[in-house]
């Protein structure tokens, strides 16, 4: 992976929390890559995701997004989307309001918000659910809403934390299809999973982590 094409570059990142120490970890991701980050529980993959998203600040090392050092940039200013394992949908907002939330934060005007939400609703087959309460959605629907919300403002990198682990076999296949479509749209994706088989046919790069270190990249 040449340095020039890197959309995301991590250099010697280290972080200690409680008794766990991550790194030093270095990796780089090219634009449009679908990187699968796998490893057993406690290998540090979710921590790495949180560091990239800015929910944690590294003790050492640097994170670059399109060449810009974002190591100390606030999560709200990073242009890094994150799909949480439990989706983290806002229970007091409707499906429409959930998807519109990042657009409002990024100062989109009303008609732009309407257009973008409708576009995403069509893309993720959510049009009929727009006014629904998020608590009333199925697991698959919740995930599609969370995905639509995460990419609504077009973040440069999308981080997925175990996106398929909470879904049953049937939903997992349809969800993989959605991720495949996202990948083909050119979205750069970092997909954390404890199950290597889950990213079969999706990943362009596979990174394996173990006890806080990157064990292999292929």
């Amino acid at each position: 992976m040449s340095k020039e094409n890197n959309i995301l570059r991590i250099e010697e990142l280290e972080h200690k929390a409680d008794s766990f120490t991550l790194g030093p970890v270095s990796l780089s991701v090219n634009e449009g890559d679908y990187v699968a980050l796998s490893g057993p529980s406690g290998s540090g993959k979710s921590m790495l995701l949180e560091l990239i998203a800015g929910l944690r600040i590294a003790d050492k090392g640097k994170i670059f997004l399109q060449g810009e050092d974002i190591s100390f940039v606030l999560p709200s200013k990073r242009s890094v989307g994150l799909l949480f394992q439990d989706y983290a949908l806002f229970p007091h907002l409707s499906v429409f309001e959930n998807i519109a939330y990042p657009l409002k934060n990024h100062s989109f005007v009303k008609h732009q918000i309407q257009e973008r939400v409708e576009e995403l609703a069509g893309y993720f087959s959510l049009t009929h659910l727009m006014s629904r309460d998020t608590n009333s959605l199925s697991g698959g629907e919740k995930q599609r809403v969370a995905l639509a919300r995460a990419i609504a403002y077009k973040p440069r990198v999308l981080l997925l934390d175990e996106p398929l682990s909470a879904l049953d076999e049937e939903l997992r296949e349809s969800s993989k299809e959605v991720l495949r479509q996202l990948k083909s749209s050119g979205q750069t994706i970092l997909h954390v999973t404890h199950n290597k088989d889950e990213v079969e046919g999706l990943a362009t790069t596979r990174i394996s982590m173990y006890q806080g270190f990157i064990r292999s990249v292929f």
Partner: peptide, 27 residues
């Protein structure tokens, strides 16, 4: 209020004050 929801709001571009006003306080 689950911390996860506040973290999600931050990754969706909300400032600390906006997270408080739109997520924490309503919930």
């Amino acid at each position: 209020v689950p911390v996860r929801l506040e973290q999600a709001a931050r990754t969706l571009g909300a400032s600390g004050l906006r997270v408080f006003a739109t997520i924490s306080l309503p919930l």
